[in-house]
Nucleic acid binder design. Structure first.
Length: 408
RNA sequence: CGGGCUGUGGUAUAGUGGCAUUACGCACGAUUCGGGUUCGUGUAAUCCGAGUUCGAUUCUCGGCAGCCCGACCA
């Protein structure tokens, strides 16, 4: 894509009140725009990143047998009354229509998926089953904060699994845990993330959170020095030893909750009477697991982890483009390289604007595309384009052919 | 929800009880061309309501909005 055609422009200064790196850099770079506190428009550049993250998650969910759905955001009040959450959940958005009928804006989808399963699943032969979706969630946060890390409306992947037995749920839960690690590895966050034991509510001993180390995080975790698993502060007092290895030495750290997996047991299958016939002909209540990961929060976390004073440094798998091609002159060479890259299906962002070199470099650093290729009289005289990684200081001259080959 | 801070062009800012400053952006013209080049011309703003006052963007009160801290948060 040509930068001259891009809808957004970069900004020199960030909104004065924003403190968090993700809000400042994503806004300045033209990835997102704030409509109100906790509610953002995802702009073209940001959407490219979001779609990259989405596809990685989709592949990993498909790999553990998940089937993709798209459930509604507008829910009937009755379903939420059935589970008791209409009144119990204080961050539930409630809306009324002209006739006075009430609805919930979905903060999560147990109340939709459980009754849906009831319509289609009636035999043990259908199990286990897992459904997932990418969906805009609504949560009435009293205090939205930290840019896109805690929004009132945000994009989330939620997976729900259904099982005949607790043992089967346990097995699937481990598979989902592995899938989450694969997702985190692919988006570049695995190294900084600790599996964290958190409250399991009344229905299971623990839930597991994937906590990514960052000062921007709002959770405090205690990392076991022996096994590197962690405990969330919320259960630290009643869990003095590491549940994984019994270690007792911990290091305190701030972290962002990147994902959360949960054994729900029969908490939501019971209210909807979600039973099937087992082999012996008897009815059996299903057990359920849920697995959430916020895409917008992942995008924000990546920026918190990967940036410097000049801008974002996207990991390749989630970058909006692979290479930022910068033309400093009006020569035809840059156009040629742009076409070559495109022909080879390399995602290229071409700065063909008539602005100064300094502005182009500053924009490239801010936007943070992993590779930068500069084409100028100087580089052409030296034999091609000057190619540099965003994460590194020095580049090298590569001929157009080698550039295409290296990036392919 | 409690506390704190803040609301001035699109963005970032200055200042003032009496014609509202500057920079960036944007438009036009010139200049320059490897780290936000330089110059000229133009464009555009005091969150809302009430009060005090001859006069309020400025002071007072209320509201709304934003950010931060806390509480809350599968």
């Amino acid at each position: 894509m040509r930068q001259s055609q891009l809808f957004t422009k970069t900004q020199k200064s960030a909104p004065k009140d924003e403190v968090s790196a993700n809000a400042r850099l994503l806004t300045r770079g033209g990835f997102i725009d704030k409509l109100m506190a906790g509610v953002y428009t995802v702009l073209p550049l940001g959407l490219r990143v979001m779609k990259k993250i989405e596809n990685i998650i989709r592949e990993e969910m498909n790999a553990i047998g998940g089937q993709e759905f798209e459930m509604p955001a507008l829910h009937p009040k009755e379903n939420w009354e059935k589970t008791g959450r209409w009144s119990a959940m204080d961050d539930l958005y409630k809306v009324k229509d002209a006739s006075g009928r009430e609805f919930a804006l979905g903060p999560t989808h147990e109340e939709v998926i459980a009754p849906l399963m009831k319509k289609f699943v009636s035999s043990y032969k259908n199990l286990p089953f897992a459904a997932y979706q990418f969906q805009t969630k609504f949560r009435m946060e009293l205090r939205a904060k930290s840019g896109i890390l805690r929004g009132r409306e945000f994009l989330m992947k939620d997976l729900y699994s259904f099982h005949l037995t607790e043992k089967d749920l346990d097995e699937y839960y481990e598979k989902a845990k592995e899938a989450y690690w694969k997702i985190l590895k692919r988006v570049g966050l695995k190294e900084k993330t600790h599996l964290t034991f958190a409250s399991g509510g009344t229905f299971s001993k623990y839930s597991h959170e994937f906590q990514t180390l960052s000062d921007a995080g709002e959770d405090t975790i205690y990392i076991c020095e022996k096994c590197q698993n962690a405990i969330n502060r919320e259960i630290k007092s009643k869990t003095p030893a590491c549940p994984a290895c019994k270690g007792k030495k911990f290091k305190e750290a701030k972290a962002i909750e990147a994902g959360n997996i949960f054994k729900l047991m029969d908490k939501f299958t019971k209210p909807f009477d979600l039973k099937v016939r087992d082999v012996d002909g008897k009815e059996k209540m299903l057990v359920m697991g849920c697995y959430g990961i916020g895409l917008s929060r992942i995008m924000g976390t990546i920026v918190e982890v990967y940036h410097n004073e000049n801008g974002i440094i996207w990991p390749e798998n989630v970058a909006p483009f692979k290479v930022h091609l910068i033309s400093l002159g009006k020569d035809k060479e840059a156009e040629k390289i742009y076409n070559d890259l495109q022909k080879n299906n390399i995602e290229v962002f071409f700065d063909d604007r008539d602005v100064s070199a300094g502005e182009k470099f500053a924009d490239a650093d801010l936007i943070g595309i992993p590779w930068r290729a500069v084409v100028s009289k100087k580089s052409l005289a030296a034999g091609g384009a000057e190619v540099k990684k965003r994460s590194e200081k020095k580049g090298k001259i590569l001929s157009a052919d080698v550039l295409v080959k290296n990036l392919r």
